[in-house]
Computed example of a mutant assay.
Amino acid sequence: MTAEQEEPHVDTLHGRGGNRLLWPDLPHGLRAEIESRLGSSVVAAASRAGGFSPGLASVLRLADGRQVFAKAVSSAPNPVSPGIHRREAAIAAQLPASAPVPKLLWSHDDGDWVVLVFEALTGDSPTLPWVPAERDRVLAALTDLGAAMTPAPPGLDVRPIDVLDEEFSGWRGLLDRPDPRLAEVDPWAAERLADLATWETHWLTAARGETLLHGDIRADNVLLTGDGVYFVDWPAAMVGAAWVDLVLALPSMTMQGAGEPEELLRTHPLARSADKDAITAVIVALAGYFVSKSLQPPPPGIPTVRAFQRAQGLACLRWLRVRGL
C-alpha cells in the first residue's frame, strides 16, 4: 500500500491530539482562581476532544446553572502553547460583536498558565466524515465570513499574511536540504521538487489582500448551532485575500470526506474572481508546509499532529495534480 492509499488513523481523521487536560488536572490554585472569577464553583466539566492544544478545552457547568467554555494551558507540555493562547486572547477581545465567534468573557495570565473563558454556545462540531448538508452550511458560512471581514475591521492589531512566509517555504527548504524520505511520502513531489519550489516563491504576492482571515479553519474549529455557524480558535488570524481561508480549509475537509477540493473550489463564490495561478501558488506553498512539517519530529506534547499534517499534505498534492501541475 502506497502513502497515498493509506487510510488515516481515526485520530488523524478527526484532528484529535489525544492530549487534553481535564479540569481536575489543573493546579488547585488555578482552579480556585477560575472559580473566583466565575463567581461560582464548577460542578461538571465536559472536555472537547478535537484539536491539538495540550491543554484544557472544556465546557464548565457551574453551581449557579451557568455554562462557560474554558481553555487553559501552561508551558509544561509545550513551551509555545501559552503564547498561542495569549495571541488568541488578544485577537478575540478585538473581534467585532457581529463576527460569528463565541464572545470572550475574560482571560487570566499568571506568567505561565494562560486561561481563556468564552460564552458556551449550544452546538457541535461537524460530523466526521463530513456529511453534505453540514459541509454546505460551513462553505456558505465561509462566504458570509469573507464578506463580513472585507475589509478587515479597523483598529485590529492583526498581522498581514506575510507572517507565514517563513513557514510557507517548505519546498525551498527541502531543495536546499534534501531529505530522502520525501520520495517515500510522495514520489511525484520528489521528482517535481524544483518546480514546486519555484511555484512556492509566488504564493505571498498571490495571497495578499484586505480580508481578516481566520487562518486555521477545519472541522474542530467550527461549531454548528441551531441558528448559525461559528468559527472558534482565532490565534492564527491575519489579513489577506478573501479566498485564502477557503483554500487553507479544503485539504483537511477533503481528508475528512467532504469531497474533491477542486470541485468544492470551482463552485464556491469566494473563488470566482480569484486568479487560477494565484490559487495554485498558495496550494503549492500549503503542500510544502504540511509535507515538510510532517518530516520533522513531533513538537512537545503534540504527538499526533505530524500524521494530520502529512494527510493534508497528500491531499494538497493530489489536488495539484488535478489542477494539471
Rank of each mutant, 00 (worst) to 15 (best):
S41D: 03
A99P: 15
L156G: 01
L204N: 06
A46F: 12
A120S: 06
S47M: 13
S107K: 08
W106F: 15
M253L: 09
G15D: 15
W130Y: 15
T198E: 14
D136W: 04
A258N: 05
P151E: 01
Q309H: 10
P24N: 07
A89E: 07
R181N: 02
E262T: 11
V232L: 15
E33Q: 13
Y289D: 02
L250C: 13
D195H: 14
A63Q: 06
T150N: 02
G240N: 08
P96L: 06
A194G: 12
V229M: 07
A140D: 12
P27S: 06
L22K: 06
G65H: 04
R87S: 00
L22E: 13
H85K: 11
R177K: 05
T225A: 14
M255C: 10
S107P: 11
P235R: 02
A281F: 05
A32F: 00
P178D: 05
D245K: 00
R266G: 10
L212C: 14
S169W: 01
P8M: 12
L250K: 07
L139Q: 07
A72G: 03
V229Q: 09
L38D: 07
L246S: 15
P154K: 07
V68M: 09
P100C: 14
S252A: 10
G18Y: 04
P126H: 07
T304F: 00
K276W: 06
I217W: 08
W23D: 04
G111T: 09
G288H: 08
P303G: 07
L142V: 05
G228Q: 02
E119W: 04
V291I: 09
L105Q: 09
P269H: 00
P151N: 10
A45T: 11
E35F: 03
L21Q: 11
W188S: 14
I161R: 11
I91P: 14
G15S: 13
S75F: 03
R20F: 09
E167N: 00
G29I: 05
E210V: 08
G257V: 15
W243H: 15
A45L: 04
V222N: 06
L145R: 02
A45Q: 03
A315I: 02
E263N: 13
R192E: 10
L156P: 15
A76C: 07
I34M: 11
S292E: 08
A90L: 03
W188Q: 14
E134Q: 15
M255T: 12
P79Q: 11
T267K: 00
E200L: 02
P102N: 11
G301T: 12
S81L: 02
H268Y: 04
G173V: 00
G29V: 06
S294E: 09
D186W: 09
A278I: 05
P269Q: 00
V185H: 10
V229K: 04
D136K: 07
R37K: 01
D112F: 03
A93D: 12
P102I: 09
I279Q: 12
A49L: 14
D11N: 07
S294W: 08
E6K: 14
R266S: 12
L174M: 07
P235H: 08
D179N: 11
L156Y: 11
G301S: 11
A70D: 01
D110P: 15
P261H: 04
A242K: 03
L139F: 09
G29N: 13
E260F: 03
I279N: 09
G17N: 05
A44V: 10
G111Y: 14
S252M: 08
L286E: 01
H108D: 11
T211S: 09
T198Q: 14
D277S: 10
G50C: 10
A147S: 08
